[in-house]
């Protein structure tokens, strides 16, 4: 089983530092939710963990250093659901999800029956079978987001990086998708690192929450420790009330005027 750990991760765009020395460690079967205001560096952190941007510091996947692994090896271990996925023109949902099998298809080869079976299973699991022959661009925002998640699941990676996987989903599908990921990580011991803007969901599904502000880790720990009303109002500039419940804190926005 593959855990993720990193020490002193830094990243910069055009000379501007966006991540300054992020440390984290996530064990197999554990879900870490990264929260923080817009522009804090959450997406950048996930991109660094996926190895698609150059980053300083040490990132270790299982027993291997990320920067010593080949692209295919990384892709077989780390699957990414991007915040704003590219929607290819004219590609069917089936073919799109099949892209997730890329790390297992021989370099010069084509997918086989096992790959098609795997794609079918994933589509079924995400309620997408009836969309299999439709083009991705013809799907609604939420259906499309499920297709992207399906592609990541078809990748059979032990580390899932989910960047705002529920923004386009209705409440029921948000719960459904988060429960699905929760079930998978428990049954298959996956590492899940996700960003979530909904702090209540962050508290319900994250084993731990990491608060990132301006590229620095401000707080990290169990949801109840991190998501306190004064912390949220300080760093998000929001007025909230935090209600303690047995399944975690509920972060409730409240109006100060009107």
């Amino acid at each position: 089983m593959t855990g993720v750990s990193c020490r002193g991760v830094t990243a910069r765009y055009n000379g501007a530092t966006v991540l300054s020395g992020v440390d984290l460690a996530v064990r197999p079967g554990e879900w870490l939710v990264v929260v923080g205001p817009n522009g804090a560096g959450k997406t950048t952190l996930l991109r660094a963990l996926a190895g698609v941007i150059p980053a300083g510091g040490d990132i270790v996947l299982g027993d291997q250093k990320l920067n010593q692994m080949r692209r295919r090896e990384v892709a077989a271990r780390v699957a990414v659901v991007p915040q704003t996925p590219v929607v290819p023109d004219g590609v069917t949902v089936f073919d799109y999800v099949m892209l997730g099998r890329t790390p297992y298809i021989p370099y010069w080869g084509m997918e086989g029956p096992a790959d098609r079976q795997r794609v079918t299973t994933v589509l079924e699991r995400l309620d997408l079978l009836s969309f299999a022959g439709r083009t991705v661009s013809s799907l609604s925002g939420g259906e499309r987001q499920r297709a992207v998640l399906a592609r990541a699941l078809a990748q059979d990676a032990s580390i899932l990086l989910l960047d705002e996987p529920t923004t386009a989903l209705d409440l029921g599908h948000q719960q459904q998708v988060l429960e699905l990921v929760d079930g998978l990580r428990r049954e298959a011991g996956l590492v899940v690192i996700s960003t979530l803007h909904d702090l209540t969901f962050a508290a319900q599904f994250g084993d731990r929450v990491l608060l990132l502000v301006a590229g620095e880790v401000i707080a990290e720990g169990r949801p109840g420790q991190v998501l306190r009303a004064e912390v949220v109002s300080e760093h998000f500039g929001a007025t909230v009330e935090v209600i303690e419940r047995p399944d975690g804190p509920v972060v409730l926005p409240v109006r100060t005027r009107g």
Binding site: V80, P88, V91, L99, G100, I105, W108, Q155
Partner: peptide
């Protein structure tokens, strides 16, 4: 023709193609 499948993967853009294991 040898790169036909890689070209299909490139349809999702360079960054996503690279998270799928393509250089």
């Amino acid at each position: 023709f040898a790169y036909r499948r890689h070209l299909d993967v490139m349809a999702v853009g360079e960054e996503e193609a690279s998270t799928l294991g393509i250089d």
